[in-house]
Each structure stands twice: as structure tokens, then as C-alpha cells.
Design a protein around this nucleic acid. Sequence first.
DNA 1: AAAGATTAAATCGTGTACGATACAAATATA
DNA 2: TATATTTGTATCGTACACGATTTAATCTTT
Lengths: 149, 149
Amino acid sequence: MNAPELYLENQLCFPLYATSRLTTKIYAPYLEELGVTYPQYLVLLTLWQYNDQSVTSIGKRLYLESNTLTPLLKRLEQKRLIVRSRSKTDERTVMITLTDAGKKLKKKALEIPKKIIASFEDDTITEEEMIFFQKTLFKLLNVLNDKTS
Amino acid sequence: MNAPELYLENQLCFPLYATSRLTTKIYAPYLEELGVTYPQYLVLLTLWQYNDQSVTSIGKRLYLESNTLTPLLKRLEQKRLIVRSRSKTDERTVMITLTDAGKKLKKKALEIPKKIIASFEDDTITEEEMIFFQKTLFKLLNVLNDKTS
DNA sequence: AAAGATTAAATCGTGTACGATACAAATATA
DNA sequence: TATATTTGTATCGTACACGATTTAATCTTT
């Protein structure tokens, strides 16, 4: 029974899944220097860009929920990069605050993007193609976010 | 300290990670009907397309290793969709064979792609753009595979 | 204001990912 | 042909993901 619609090379889900995982592996050596995991790095990016905020706010930006974030944030707190504290105006909310160490780590992180871009460099994909790719990717992310919420 | 190179919207890793996860969520209701998880579905796609093969062979196609695959394959075996058996010509190798139930599931899976395409449909992204996107995505996957191996 | 509904985190259980390591079988080399 | 190396799986520990549920705080409604 021939079924090209089920071939791996005709899927969209599979290359997204595989590329996402391999990209994370490219980051690994640099993140190891920072002492954080990849999802922890994304939380730090969120905090560096948008400053202190609630767990839900971080979740909205990263498309994650408290079931994933709470344990992750506890680990970041153990590493003394953030502080978790109940809001006084709304006791349901937990505010995430960067510590000095967490803020300092940003300087080190600034070196990462250029190293990543360098390791992505390749003859088969032009810079223009990558920019277009990134645009479509973000469009797709928005579409999917509407569909899943 | 302004650092646009660290903004979430300027990353490539982050939208890949988020889009991959949201795509998996789109599949969830259909995979529930099949009674498998998303990575289990990918293994079945591999077996349907390339027939019976070793753990390593599946891993090469999906960019996974035995540390991930062995437990996953044991679950597929418990569901009676595959059989794991040591090769007689090479006792190191474990051959993965589809059961009749595993083969039959392909018929049900054939309905999934069109449903997924329908749920991806959107005015902001043309079909042409999606095809181009998929091409770049596979190119990127190949580049990353070279870099990480 | 009391009852009901909503919201924000946290918890729990299952299933990946993956680096590191172990181990046995097969292959290569001295 | 012994020994060393490589290969194919499996195991272990840590860290996500995520659906489902719980709990407490806040908001809405009557």
C-alpha cells in the first residue's frame, strides 16, 4: 500500500520536531557555560527582554503553562538566578524577579547569538532565504497559537 | 542594556521550539484515536515507509538514539503494534517488525494528513509559501545534522 | 454580602529527550 | 588467534512537556 502522504519527507511536523531538537543541541555547549538548560535560557531571554513578570506572563510568551514552568523556575531559583515571590496585591500570582547574578548572566549570553549564526552558516541556504524562513515560521506560530487556544 | 539580538522575536531557536510543540498539539486529537503518542507515530511512519528495520535504522531516520527509542519501542510492543526481536545474524541488533495490528493502523492514519492540512489553512500564509518553507526546513535539518554529528 | 464562576499556581502521572555509562557481540588489528 | 576497537542496545539520572486535577484567591452575579 503506497502512501506518499505518510512519508517522512512529506510531513511538516517531523522536520519541525527534528530541527528544533538539533538546534537545541547546537546551543548546548554555550548554554553549559551559562549553567542553564535550553528552556531555562528561554525563560531568561523573556526576563531580560520584558523584565520581572508573573509565571503566567512568561508562559504566554513561551507558550508554556505552570505545570512546566513551576519546576523549571524552582531550579532557576536554586541556581540563584531568579527569585519567586507571591504578589502582595494578588496572592494568586507569583512574581519572577531576576537576581543580580541573573542580570549579569545577560552579558555572557550576548556572545551566544553570533556564535550560533556562525555555526548555522552554510552554502546551501542563503541569508535571504533564512530571513524569509524565519518570517514564515513566526506566521505559522501565530496561526497555530490561534488554533490551539 | 538594550540587546535586540537576545529578543525572542529575533531568535530562530525559539519559534522552532514553540511551533514544533504547538504542531504536536494539533495532532493530539487524531493520534488519540490511533492510541499512540506523537513520537510513537513518527516511529510508525518510519516502519510504514521503510518496513521492518533495526533500532539504529529508525534512529538514523528520526535523529534519535536507543536511549530514547528503546523505552518507546517497548511501549509500542505492549500495545501489540510492533515486535522486538534479536537478529539471528547479528545478536547485537534488535529488529522491529510491524504486527498485523500495526499494519492495519496505517489505514486509519491515512486520514490524518488531510485533516492536519485543513487545520493549518490560513489566509496569512499561501500554499506556495508553505512549500518553500518546508524546503528550507529540510535543508536546515540536513545542515544541522552535519554540524551535530 | 454570600454563592458561584474564574483565575493563578502547584501537583501528579506518563512519556519523551539526552548525556553518560555499561555490556555484549562483532569486527579489526597486531 | 588473542587483543583492541567498534558497534548496537540498554540502563540510569536529570529535565522537560503536558493533560488532568487541586487549591486558594479574586471576581461576578444575584
